[in-house]
Amino acid sequence: MENKRAYIKPILESETFVPQCYCASCGDSGITYLFECNAPAGTLYYYPHSDGNIDGNYTGYGRAERMGSYHPCNIKHQTDSTGDFYDGFVDRNENRRQDPGEGVIVYRNWENGWFGGHWDGHATANLDMDSWEIAKS
Rank of each mutant, 00 (worst) to 15 (best):
E94P: 00
Y46W: 12
N95S: 10
T16G: 00
G27F: 07
T59S: 13
K4Q: 10
K76Q: 15
S81G: 10
R5S: 11
D84V: 12
E94H: 14
S25E: 09
E133C: 02
F85G: 08
N57M: 09
T32H: 02
G113F: 09
Y107A: 09
I105G: 01
D128C: 09
Y33W: 13
P10S: 01
N74W: 06
P40T: 12
N93E: 04
Y107N: 12
I11P: 00
F89I: 05
Y58Q: 10
S131W: 03
Y58H: 15
N109L: 12
A6Y: 04
S81T: 15
D91A: 11
Q78V: 01
I75P: 00
A41R: 14
P72Q: 03
Y47E: 07
G113D: 05
D128M: 05
G116N: 04
N57E: 13
G103F: 05
Y7L: 11
D51F: 04
V106K: 12
G27W: 01
E133N: 06
Y61H: 12
R92V: 09
T43Y: 11
Y46Q: 08
D55Q: 09
R66C: 15
Y22T: 13
Y86P: 08
N74I: 01
Y22D: 11
G52T: 10
W110P: 01
I31T: 15
N3P: 07
N109T: 11
D99E: 15
K9T: 02
P10K: 00
D120N: 14
M1P: 12
I8E: 07
E15M: 00
R108Y: 01
S131M: 09
G42L: 09
C37T: 04
C26S: 13
G30Y: 05
D80T: 09
P19L: 02
E13Q: 00
R97K: 15
I8D: 01
W114E: 14
